[in-house]
Simulated scan of single mutants.
Amino acid sequence: MLPADPGDARYSQWLLRWYDAHARDLPWRHKPGEPADPYRVWLSEIMLQQTTVATVRPRFAEFIARWPTVTALAATDDADLMGAWAGLGYYARARNLLACARQVVTAHGGVFPPEEAALRALPGIGDYTAAAIAAIAFGKRAVVIDGNVERVVARLFAIDTPLPAAKPIIRLLVDQITPMTRAGDFAQAMMDLGSGLCGPRVTQCLLCPLRTVCRAAAAGTPTAFPVKPRKSAKPQRYGTVFWLEHAGKILLVRRPDKGLLGGMRALPTGPWTDTAPGLEGAPDAAIDWQIAPDRVSHVFTHFTLELALAVGRAEGHSPPATGEWWAITSLDSAGLPTVFAKAARLGPRLGPRLGN
């Protein structure tokens, strides 16, 4: 029988008992009841934004090996950090990561503040991340809500208000079921439940510790929640990426600090527009550019992009003064964002078109 109200203590009791037995073993996570490292909690939370655990797990280990403390991270060069971040996407996170580390060192003596308000004042830390760090790293009672928690609570109480309008309702309910003690373990238990037994498309209700109090499960319709509005199609944009060779090297440029993929090394590209821009934005108009039949497709958060490849050789010309020349054989070490890494992987196929 369902409890009378979400204040029923059985929600947290049953969930924490399940978590103690089934918590995921993650490299940034402390065992239930043990102290946490705020630096690891913060780093993992930033890396996990819009990125899967499977992707983050090995990259987190690389970061910790290279920068074991927030002080070490704060001292690194911007370009080194941006290169190490390549492939994780949402590159504003990398810029904020470095800015946050430096502020923690300069303003807080290299120690993360434990209070949500102070955490929210740091670069790149919003409401969710501040609550997660406060609860998981410092044991504070905080309301921690990510996509997994939203899904679990929407099903637990069969919330029929579509997202995002349902967010205030979900927050109120999470607040009511969050215990005064072990709030960090409770938050991680909710995340584990959502990532494992209560997935977006597949549920394992018979194994769920909350199955007897879940209204969506009782109705036999768990995957009907949360209710989501119909998605609109993403805009399509087009551009040209320029593959310019010179003496076994390829021209790379540094993208502007502000904007999409800001501060990253990249192949030169023209504008991204609603129609194919041709050779607009070429790094050297005197080059005999050849448009290859290959296309690079990439999906960003708010639009999809199709890039044509313009191939050229700088021999016989004065190479452009801006940018840097990078050995083609070591392009993997340049830390290119995924969309440009896709284009760079076509390089060996482009050589014959240049008469190599």
Rank of each mutant, 00 (worst) to 15 (best):
A74Y: 07
F186H: 04
G262C: 09
K228H: 09
R57T: 11
G355N: 03
I169V: 13
A233D: 07
A327M: 13
P179K: 01
W272A: 01
P68C: 12
A118W: 13
T55R: 14
A286F: 15
R349Y: 10
F300W: 08
F186Y: 13
W14V: 12
D257H: 13
A314D: 03
L193H: 03
A131V: 12
G139I: 11
A9I: 15
D257S: 10
D288L: 14
L210D: 05
G147D: 08
A276H: 14
W289A: 00
Q13A: 08
N148A: 02
R57V: 10
I291E: 13
L279A: 03
L97M: 12
H246D: 08
L309Q: 03
P179T: 05
N356L: 15
T178P: 13
R120T: 05
A292Q: 09
A61R: 08
R201Q: 12
P200Y: 12
A308H: 13
V143F: 14
M47R: 00
L336G: 00
L15Y: 01
G7R: 15
K258I: 15
E45C: 03
A224F: 15
L279H: 04
E62F: 07
P35C: 07
A131T: 04
T240Q: 02
A36Y: 09
A314G: 05
D185M: 09
D288T: 00
P235A: 07
I287K: 06
L15G: 01
W243G: 09
I64R: 02
R10I: 13
D37N: 06
A187H: 05
T275G: 06
G124V: 02
P179Q: 00
N356G: 14
A308E: 08
A61S: 11
T129S: 06
F303K: 10
L97W: 09
M264R: 04
F60M: 05
A107Y: 11
T273V: 04
K31S: 15
Q188E: 11
D294P: 13
W85R: 02
P352R: 03
A233N: 06
R17D: 13
Q13H: 09
E62W: 08
E62Q: 07
L15Q: 02
H108P: 12
G263R: 01
P320R: 12
A101E: 01
Q103T: 07
A4S: 14
A247W: 00
S330V: 15
L309C: 12
A314S: 09
V311H: 00
V70E: 00
G323C: 10
